[in-house]
Design a protein around this nucleic acid. Structure first.
Lengths: 131, 131
DNA sequence: ACAATATCCGATGAAATAGGTCGGATATCT
DNA sequence: AGATATCCGACCTATTTCATCGGATATTGT
């Protein structure tokens, strides 16, 4: 299969929400309620995005998340990589996995890598602003 | 995550193998050994592809699978859909899943559906022949 | 006829992944 | 001080995916 995880969906929704109200920070709880997302799950996603530099977090009452400068040009690909690590259509081009058993016999690796590349380019061209 | 399953990889490798030798049928056992794929898993994949009309199966000694006419123009997308059912980047556009809880609030559905469409087009343009 | 070799089919078990939960810490505003 | 935030790690559970097993049917060659 080829799909976006729920976490990815959640992240994109939350990011769009935060980008829409640049002036006041949005709390994780508020976003979670608005979109029906489990609070704890969303909190962790936003933390990851913060560490990656796409959001700025503000503790305390009236706190929440606001867009960081880097979020202006953030793409779908950026979000996915922040949430799920390096993207890999193929296991054998996935740095997290070990080497592929079929490596030496595999006849489809090269051509599929090109397809993979195109998909990644497509995701990298789609900014969150235009969503 | 966004990835091709192992089954998809296996299927693509096997199909390419079968298409390469159009003259004599290739047995599942032979292919499984050549590429280091578990025999039973591969057998089921080839059965699915046969039911979809991309392959012709031949029982008995000297039997095996040979390319059906429909395999001439088969694309990566065709293979994926045959093996894993309808493709869906998003859960909410997946006919196998129920309706999405966030449906009414979700602000990213429409734009992502366009991205999904583009990815599917890309996979649908890539034929197995050119791989 | 018989044996060997194929595909076929369903059910089941095991491993990996993703999604969700819990407990507690730190920071900020009122 | 107390309420409300983010923060962090560990853990549990459901789902999905991968692999295995047992047995049936069909075809070919001896």
């Amino acid at each position: 299969m080829i799909r976006l995880s729920k976490k990815a969906d959640y992240s994109l929704m939350a990011l769009k929400h935060i980008l829409a109200k640049e002036n006041e920070p949005s709390s994780a709880r508020e976003i979670a309620q608005t979109y029906g997302i489990p609070f704890e799950v969303l909190a962790k996603l936003l933390q990851k995005l913060t560490r990656k530099g796409y959001l700025i977090s503000q503790h305390g009452t009236k706190g929440g998340y606001s867009p960081a400068p880097a979020s202006q040009t953030i793409t779908v690909r950026d979000v996915l990589e922040a949430i799920e690590g390096p993207l890999a259509l193929l296991d054998c081009s996935n740095p997290r996995k070990g080497t592929c058993d079929q490596e030496k016999y595999c006849s489809v690796r090269r051509p599929l890598a090109r397809v993979e590349q195109k998909v990644l380019e497509l995701l990298g061209r789609t900014t969150l602003r235009e969503i």
